[in-house]
Design a protein around this nucleic acid. Sequence first.
DNA 1: TGCCAGGATATTGTATCCAATCTAACACTG
DNA 2: CAGTGTTAGATTGGATACAATATCCTGGCA
Lengths: 229, 229
Amino acid sequence: MPVNDALARLVARAQPRFRTTAEFVEATLREAILTGAIAPGTPLRQEDLAETFGVSRMPVREALRQLEARALAEFHPHRGAVVAEISATDAADIGAIRMALEPMALRLSLPGLTTDDLAQAEELIAEMDGETDPGRMGELNRRFHMTLYGRAGRPRLLALAEQHLLAADRYLRFQFAALGYQPRSQDEHRALLDACRAGDGATAERLVAEHVGEAAEQLAAFLKDRVAG
Amino acid sequence: MPVNDALARLVARAQPRFRTTAEFVEATLREAILTGAIAPGTPLRQEDLAETFGVSRMPVREALRQLEARALAEFHPHRGAVVAEISATDAADIGAIRMALEPMALRLSLPGLTTDDLAQAEELIAEMDGETDPGRMGELNRRFHMTLYGRAGRPRLLALAEQHLLAADRYLRFQFAALGYQPRSQDEHRALLDACRAGDGATAERLVAEHVGEAAEQLAAFLKDRVAG
DNA sequence: TGCCAGGATATTGTATCCAATCTAACACTG
DNA sequence: CAGTGTTAGATTGGATACAATATCCTGGCA
């Protein structure tokens, strides 16, 4: 029973902080890795991180373990953790996982999609049209996809799908470098949205699979000679 | 450059020990949770676990964080961690994820399957025939599926598939309680193996999706009135 | 009854200490 | 000079003690 609701909202917004220090460190590092702010292969030295975050080593170690479980960091015993490397294999892996999860998410979500959802998806496509910043583009693309999947009513499936959409963002700058990606992708987005509007589940599923698959193939071809693996 | 390959294999087999105490604790707890040795909702008190394992609280906390990242434990700040609850929703979630991942894994693996793989799969089916112990049954079933997916050449996809096969094991005792499951499941296993032998990818994919989907539906119906969510 | 103040209990985080071990550089040896 | 000890330094892995904080419970009080 707060004094009033407006205040309650203010308070709620003022503390979207984290529940524990370890979670704060984990979330911050995760974002830094996914956006590329910390390059693959970078050593994650506990002492340095602790100092950077102004915390002790224990929450840092907890955070690193969580990152390891999410395949964002690799542990080498007595040598420390490093930011997980990117590779053509890894990109193909993420592409295959997305190709599996996202059509399923869309299938379950489609019957529940509201006109509001569809309008929001359309707006996100429009926003993407002019966007040139990879980071912002990744976020918009992710929100577009997750908007379409959001009514699946399968929290775990959705979390997994989002996690791999985020993982794909690590390869976004390569995706941009592979010319001609964006326009085609936008066409595919529109076709996908149309199928969803029409309630055509089979087509929508096929389109999202193709959309993800094409991007993955293009990326794999581009990475082949540029990175290891 | 190992001296020779036989030695390399021996070395690889000789050190599947754990690299650190934290990893030992994590692996042991994970197994205990997945097999049901620790019931859902059980508090995971750091001090108790530390004493049980004969270690300090630090590796225990790292292990708990990893379990959290794998959705096997839930953290309630300042109240501690508990073994993740099971629920009809969660079971449906896992079923949907398996239905998405496993046909994809099979699709990628099928062209690479050897006659040895197929023979091993057949052997596993035979072993399952007489099995009545749920834990052993889960392991055989998991090995059967993973044998078929093993040539996908997508480590991350396979790890994810295996993780959710393991997660499904938490519901195995319910699966057994739902009568008539096993014989039908075995028929499906044989049909799936036949399709793989014939190299009929489309049929194999469909069969594995149906196989997983049917089991999930049956389980959901059974759980509906028996557990929360 | 309702509530709220305060204590018991557990977790969370900090600060130190020490052992294990990996790396790298150097010296030694045949 | 290639290959093999050896040593020193740095970093992680783990233990321990302690402080801070949040939750739950309970008992007094209106």
